[in-house]
Write a protein that binds this DNA or RNA. Structure first.
Lengths: 205, 205
DNA sequence: TGTACATCAGTGAACGCGCGTTCACTGATGTAC
DNA sequence: TGTACATCAGTGAACGCGCGTTCACTGATGTAC
């Protein structure tokens, strides 16, 4: 076999990935179905398994794309930001929020525990997270030039988790977190407080 | 019908609730099964439906208990805390963390989106959250006596979501959040920074 | 260019599984007299 | 206390559903000569 066949394989893979991504975006990862996918792609159910290990592998592939776009989004945003470290942090958080609220289902799929069985997360998953963390760590290091790296790392994870939590509960309609319209403001408030850029007032700005 | 029958009903309800709670605690809400439950309780599957609307209702009942214990835990902790508002906030967060890490599955069940269908969260759910929020709002009001109530409310939700996020990702082994051993330290750091009780240093204490 | 053969992408019916919920039925429990 | 009757807690087989994955098979595609 060669060229043509390989190409067709790749095309099928892409097609399935596109459709799966659309489904996850619209209805969440939980509603992805092998049969529906195959029927939309115009192939047999079995064909999926020629191109992906299983449905979990497919979701992982979707998540790979999502992570890529997320990284890009944040990178672009931070590149346009000014030199002030606090504002850089806010920019990162703001673009993270924008990403999450544009495609909440794709975003949530990144953190769905399932991926169930055994060995945990693929390596590239953690690498993508590291990439995000590195972008947060940079301005933090500027703010605290003397802090040892593992203290920076802890702060990074703390801030990331905090902002993640605010967005998570805020986007969740069921639980009354920070109202969606106020999330951005509250993230700015939190970050300015933590970095010490705003010492006195209660609300942001 | 009367007394005896009612009592037996109540006993069955309690028994089912106990078993369900144990199952959720040990293996998570997702692994609750009607048949297994009935067989452990020594009754027929159908009997479950004499006492609960459906399996969702059962999980809700488990969550009700969990919420009760959570509220109690936090109330007790805060009652023992000193007068300093920042330390009160830290106490609340710390007891929230202790609760979550003691019974992560029960805790997670409180926030599982499922509860799927339609009309959202039962009223008492939101009331329990309000109770928690009120405990956070009290020290915040002490810190900012002049802040209007809705600003206090926003801060409350912001802090709650932040701490929730730190705990969530920290307890999640897959994703590298704040390492479990450091969560408490980082929550203290965050809260002191936000309240302004610690202006200069990077790490807590 | 043509022919014989091999490979393997692609097929889709069938497998195997698990589940929540229902409902016709039973029998113990309670009521009425 | 005893008897006839009504209620409804409790039963569990059966319903209805949906799903991921497999695998014997086919036919198009590519290779070798």
């Amino acid at each position: 076999m060669a060229r043509d066949t390989e190409k067709r394989r790749a095309e099928l893979r892409d097609r399935l990935l596109d459709i799966a991504e659309r489904e996850v975006r619209n209805n969440g990862a939980a509603s992805l179905r092998a049969r529906a996918l195959a029927s939309e792609a115009g192939c047999a159910v079995g064909a999926i398994y020629n191109v992906f290990d299983d449905m979990t592998g497919l979701v992982l592939a979707v998540n790979g794309r999502t992570f890529g776009r997320l990284g890009e989004t944040v990178t672009n945003a931070v590149a346009k930001a000014g030199p002030d470290p606090t504002e850089q942090l806010i920019t990162i958080a703001r673009s993270y929020l924008a990403f999450a609220s544009t495609d909440p289902n794709l975003w949530r799929a990144l953190f769905v525990a399932d991926m169930s069985t055994d060995s945990a997360v693929p390596a590239w998953y953690l690498q993508e997270l590291q990439r995000l963390f590195a972008m947060i760590a940079a301005p933090l290091t500027k703010l605290h030039p003397d802090a040892p790296p593992d203290e920076i790392d802890l702060m990074t994870r703390t801030l990331f988790s905090s902002v993640h939590g605010i967005i998570l509960l805020g986007l969740e309609r069921r639980i009354s977190g920070v109202p969606e319209a106020k999330i951005e403001e509250m993230i700015g408030f939190l970050l300015r407080r933590v970095t010490g850029a705003d010492k006195g007032r209660v609300s942001g700005d």
